[in-house]
Design a protein around this nucleic acid. Sequence first.
DNA 1: TCTTGTGAATAGGTTCACAGCA
DNA 2: TGCTGTGAACCTATTCACAAGA
Lengths: 205, 205
Amino acid sequence: MKKIPEPSRKRLVILAKILSQSSEKKLTSVDLSRITGWGEASIRRDISSLELHNGVSNGYDTKILHDAICTALKINSPGAEKHRCCIVGLGKLGEALLESSVFKGSSFELVAGFDTNCNKIEIMKSEIPLFATLDLEIKIRSMKIEYAVLAVPDEKAQMMTDRLVTCGIKGIVNYTNIVLSVPKNIRVEHVNTVVVLTGMVAGGE
Amino acid sequence: MKKIPEPSRKRLVILAKILSQSSEKKLTSVDLSRITGWGEASIRRDISSLELHNGVSNGYDTKILHDAICTALKINSPGAEKHRCCIVGLGKLGEALLESSVFKGSSFELVAGFDTNCNKIEIMKSEIPLFATLDLEIKIRSMKIEYAVLAVPDEKAQMMTDRLVTCGIKGIVNYTNIVLSVPKNIRVEHVNTVVVLTGMVAGGE
DNA sequence: TCTTGTGAATAGGTTCACAGCA
DNA sequence: TGCTGTGAACCTATTCACAAGA
């Protein structure tokens, strides 16, 4: 299989999600175009890069296509081990992310929460083990944590990122208001509400 | 000024943020390349599309460049009226977003929170006015709310989105785990942790 | 000498348009 | 007839490479 271009991959991730949500048995590129707003030729090319050849003249079988995308992108593989994540910073937001059940049924597993406030981690009751930030390096390595959700106060964001990077973290979901500096091989997604809103306003119409 | 291409705009938003965080008086394209990891030629072209001509042989003046980007992208314009936002769904997550001070100092103003649970909105103490979801349409129109942060349970996500769309909302920051269907002219950013993580894993190395 | 700004070359993605299969 | 899959054309964005300014 040839390498799938970056924008294609992004769309395929969304497509997979749509397919898993859909109750239709078959979907055509026209259907998917209507749902997503993307051009239908574009959708067909994205899918054709999977070299699945499932759709000829019939539209795509929802389940088969979904599984094919997951396999190609190595996401949600049923048997595969889940990716281990942690939350760094247990303020209001971190706590909300910790307690919410968003991770249930996903291919990610939340295995640790960190906060500098030792009192807090003792008092908080949570199904997820909580640790002092002091032990960040030790725990991330020993627990083989791959991804971190960053929800610390802005002024600690870069410092904590540097520590995560030295532990060999693969990616950071950044809920802070700070643009983080990381080595090229580490992925950061900036999902802070204000930053995202700013991007929307700046976007052309 | 010619129209700025989409990827350029995205980078400029980030650049503006970096500039506002930086304490340096001058920054060269090489400096910015090191910080961001982007090619320096790319950075120079992004900036040159502002037709600022501030940098010749000296690097860019941090403040001037910052303001120029903000002006060009119509973000953070000092005198301009702030964009009015609301939060829809005041569960753990919505509440955390409501109480956090992320909106402070930004060009956005949080002016309303909505929840179906009337008890909750009476009991909750908040500086932001809270309303029943029943009044969503009325309030969004009368308060001229432009953007919504969606933090409702997954099963209500699309329904609530449809209601927001009919009120003429311009964009939605989507914290749910659902891919939303909206008309082309409405912007949606998907910031749900699991979705973002999935995108990271799928991303090439 | 250092750095920007930008034509020109290259690479990357999207869309068109149609052959081919059911 | 209705749909996919894909060469070919088109369009967009990045990178190269260098002239020109300080």
